[in-house]
Simulated scan of single mutants.
Amino acid sequence: MQLDSMDYNLLAEQLSSSDDHRVLTRLSPVIADPPEGDQDLRKAIFVDTETTGLDPSLDEIIEIGMVPFIYNAKSGEIVGTLPAFNALREPGCAITPAITEITGITPEMVSGKSIDPNDVREFMSGASLVVAHNSKFDRPFLEIFCPAFSLAPWACSLEDVPWREAGLSGGQLQSLALQSGFFYDAHRAQTDCHAGIELMRRTRLRDGTHSFLSLLTKGRTPHFRIWAISSPFSLKDILKARGYRFNYEEDGRPRAWYVDKPASEVQTEIDYLHKEIYQTDASPIVVVKIEPGDRFTNRV
C-alpha cells in the first residue's frame, strides 16, 4: 500500500501520542515572514566552518556556511530564516582522509574553488549578532579569513544555552537535534547552521522562556577570563574536563590553561582553583575582563 505525505503525517501524529514511541522528522527550515513594523525584530547570522584541522594558525577553512535569521530581541523568539550563503574553497594544505570522513568534503570537491572575503563581509553586514555552535572554534578561523568577524559581537549556542534546563543532555549539535525531535545531514556547514537555528527556535527552558533568550542575555554580558598560571601538569586532564583550554601560542598571553566565566561565577571558580588545583591561597591566578564583543577570540 502506497502512502501519501498526509498519511505519513497522520501516522506520525498517532505514534507521537503513544508513550512508547518517538517520531523524528527531517529538518525543514522555517522561512522568516516577520510582521511589518515590529521594532523588536533583529537579524543575526548563524555561521559554521569546515576546516582542514583544529589549529587556526596552521589549518584553513574549506567551507563556510552562513544562515541569517530573524529574532525578537525582547522575547528571544526566532521568527525564521533568510536565504543562506554557502561556499567551498581549495586550501593551501592537504585535506586528509580523516577530514574527508568527518566533513564529506574531498579534494576534488574544492579543486579550483575560492571564497572572496569581501563577499563574506557584505553578506554579514547588518547582522546584530554572530552565532556558532562552538564559537571558540569558528571565530578564530573566521577572523583570520575575514577581519570583519573581529568587529562583530558573538554568542555561542553550545556555551550560552543551558541545555539541561531545556530538558536536553550533552552538547553535540546532532544529539541535541535528535532529542528535540528532528534529524538532518550533519557536518556540512549550511545544514549545521539550519540545525542550530531550528534547535533554538523550538526549545524552551523550564521556566517557559525561549532558549535563544538565554543566549542573548549571556551575549550581552561581560565575561572574565581566568588564567590558571603554572597549574600542576598532572592535573591538566581535570582542568580540560572542567572546560579549560590551553594557550600554546607565544602571543603575549600566558602559556596556561584558561576558562571564561560570567561575573557571578568568577569567585566560585577562583575558590575551586585555590582548593582543588593549587591547594593554597597563594595562587598565581590572573583574571581579565572580556567585553561582549571580544568573547571567543584569541586576541584577549
Rank of each mutant, 00 (worst) to 15 (best):
G219K: 02
S17F: 03
R206I: 14
D271C: 15
Y71E: 00
V120K: 09
G181A: 09
Q267W: 13
R26E: 14
P68I: 00
N298S: 08
K218L: 13
F145C: 07
D294E: 09
A256Q: 05
R255I: 07
I102W: 05
I115K: 12
S114Y: 12
A166H: 08
K136L: 15
E250N: 13
P222K: 04
T280N: 10
I197M: 00
T100G: 08
G219P: 11
R121H: 14
R139G: 12
Q267I: 13
I277F: 06
D116I: 10
V120E: 06
G65A: 01
A73L: 01
I64W: 00
A87C: 11
F212I: 02
N247K: 06
N86P: 06
S135K: 05
A127Q: 10
G37K: 04
E165S: 13
P284W: 07
T81N: 02
D40A: 15
T221F: 05
H133L: 13
T49M: 05
F141D: 10
V259Q: 13
K218V: 10
Q179R: 08
H223Q: 09
T96F: 01
K113W: 15
Q39A: 12
L158A: 11
F149W: 04
E108Y: 12
A87D: 06
F246V: 07
K43Y: 01
I270P: 05
I197G: 00
L151N: 10
K136A: 15
A127K: 03
L216P: 01
I31F: 11
P34M: 02
L88T: 04
K289A: 08
D38V: 11
W154C: 02
Y248H: 10
A84M: 04
Y244D: 01
Y71N: 00
R188D: 09
Q172T: 12
I277P: 04
E60G: 02
G208M: 06
L199K: 01
T203P: 14
R295W: 03
L24K: 03
I144R: 15
P140A: 13
Y248E: 09
Y184W: 12
K289F: 02
C193L: 11
V288S: 08
R188A: 05
A166K: 08
K261F: 11
P56T: 01
M109R: 14
G92H: 07
R22M: 11
D237E: 10
A155S: 13
N298K: 08
A189P: 09
L129C: 11
G181Y: 04
